[in-house]
Design a binder for these strands. Structure first.
Lengths: 211, 211
DNA sequence: ACGTGTGAACCGATTCACAGCA
DNA sequence: TGCTGTGAATCGGTTCACACGT
């Protein structure tokens, strides 16, 4: 009932629930049980109920959950009602893919700018997003009240640039560079490390299969 | 000592250790203690020792670990000595970024082809990687003995295509599509869900900071 | 009877603490 | 003494089991 110590994994699942529920709503399903969710997602029904229970009693015993109100609850938890301005730092291939990625807008994220040091790129516009000089980060972060950044610069410069982002007031960084960033506790950091994922996969698929 | 039940998280860290150790070797450091590793990576020294202990006694008490032999051990664990052929399925922006991503070759991954259904893209060559019709997956997977695939197709088609990959004999899928894929147990699956990561980050950075 | 909400039991992973070897 | 390797203790997250509301 009280909003206590919710783990990152729970939050990640909450986002999955939201996506799933929206899909249900589109199919005009408006009541759902934890078992039905557990069938479509890869999550046990108890897990689903427990995850939600951190945020209150959102279902009806003997009935299930109203899809529309549950969606609203989840949206509230994530603060989706207000647009979240983000930036992409590093306008390489990966940055370009992120700028074009359609999945962000479902959650009310808006990419307000991309940044690079390469003079040849600065000034271009990708999908309506302008590429700016890295020197302009501070201005733009302040002007658009940007809280989050996706970092897609080369590993060598990632630490320096991340520190610059922190100085500008960025509160969370999604880091794609394969380095361990050292940042103050007050800044949230999540890493997406594709080579590591692939290595893990290689290891897993090389073992004698259980199943 | 015995190779028992190693968790995914351990494997993921092992890959980080490998990267870190290689960096040390480049700086001509050839002896390292678990504490030194723990300072650079974000992992406790006990964790590091325990992770390695699953694979034998690789260090020397009172001294530390030899960087070069430890690297070789890790490479062995991951099977890095033999080239691992992979494919990219879905030649959109993200697929293009993956094809160009330099971080894979450090671990002896080789992207042998990309696939798409779009006739306009088929036949093009990106970074030396040819874009093929999806119909040719089976041929190419067999010809190049491909074990792993990165899946960057739209969410709607991901399940179908994933099943096709499994039929071709793919043993592991790194899935970038925002859906829960339903696959046989014998196939390893890891998801990279950028929107979910960003949602988690938004949640974390919105909370009162601990730190 | 049905399905939620939740304390209790369980399980796995991390951390502690120390024995053992250089 | 210094640092590894590892059982034991701890911690946190998942699953179980059931009371409760509809």
């Amino acid at each position: 009932m009280k909003e206590r110590k919710v783990s990152n994994e729970t939050i990640r699942r909450l986002a999955l629930y939201l996506r799933c529920l929206r899909k249900l709503l589109k199919s005009n399903i408006n009541i759902v049980s934890s078992n039905q969710i557990s069938d479509t997602l890869n999550v046990s029904s108890e897990q689903f109920r427990k995850d939600l229970s951190y945020f209150g009693s959102l279902g009806k015993r003997g009935v299930g959950y109203r899809v529309d109100t549950l969606i609203r609850h989840l949206e509230k938890i994530f603060g989706i009602d207000e647009e979240c301005n983000i930036i992409v730092v590093g306008a390489g291939k990966l940055g370009s893919a992120l700028v074009a990625y359609p999945g962000f807008m479902n959650f009310n994220f808006r990419i307000v700018a991309a940044f690079d040091i390469d003079r040849k790129k600065i000034g271009r516009v990708w999908e309506g997003v302008k590429i700016e000089s890295i020197d302009r980060i501070s201005d733009i972060v302040k002007k658009h009240k940007v809280h989050l950044a996706m970092l897609t610069v080369p590993a060598e410069s990632a630490q320096i640039i991340a520190e610059k982002l922190v100085k500008c007031g960025i509160k969370g960084i999604l880091n794609f560079a394969p380095v361990n960033l050292e940042l103050p506790e007050s800044v949230s950091l999540l890493n997406v490390d594709m080579a590591t994922e692939l290595m893990t996969l290689r290891y897993l698929s090389g073992k004698p299969c259980r199943g």
